[in-house]
Amino acid sequence: MSPKTLRAMKVAVFILCLLPLGKLALEAFGVAGMSLGANPVEELLHRCGKWGLNFLLITLAITPLRRLSGWNAAIRFRRMLGLFAFFYILLHFLVYAGLDQRFAMQYIVEDIVERPYITLGIIALVLLLPLAITSTNGMMRRLGRRWQKLHRLVYPIAILAVWHFYWQVKQDILEPLIYAGILALLLGVRYFYHLQRKRKQHALTMDKKLRSETP
């Protein structure tokens, strides 16, 4: 892919990622009869959270997509998608803290301490912070091999996020279960690759050993 095409595609993906926010904004301002419905705070809260979760899973789908399709350029979009996950999750938190609780620390702290699903959500957000901060090229260079290790935090973050959703739902757990299923698939594929890699390595070392042992 030429740098020019890549650039154009990145701009297109960037705009696509902003569409959910755009729709929420139009609904919030009541443009063209659109609305957030009878409970706008809840609607904003849930939609931002859902999009954060969507982008987390989309980000986690890049590696399997790349391996299955052989389209290596897919990796070029991963950072942007991951940052959009962070962006929507941060918005989700700000809607909760700002609109729902109106920054009343006593209620926010009570929620984090006493309500397990909120505890999980906050942990996921806090764990996301270092990943967002170290997403620049400079940080990647500076951290070297440790960068990849650090960014594997996205696996527990995704698990926490789906769990947070599952625990929040009142009764109908179908939707969080679908998210859990997709996440299990995405993590399962990685485990499979990991096993494959190990087997290959094992085969290689066995091969070397055999060769060194034969006179």
Partner: peptide
């Protein structure tokens, strides 16, 4: 969740 407070529908964003 807490039952101490409630959100009145229609009160706005």
């Amino acid at each position: 969740w807490s039952q101490a407070r409630e959100r009145r529908i229609g009160a706005g964003l």
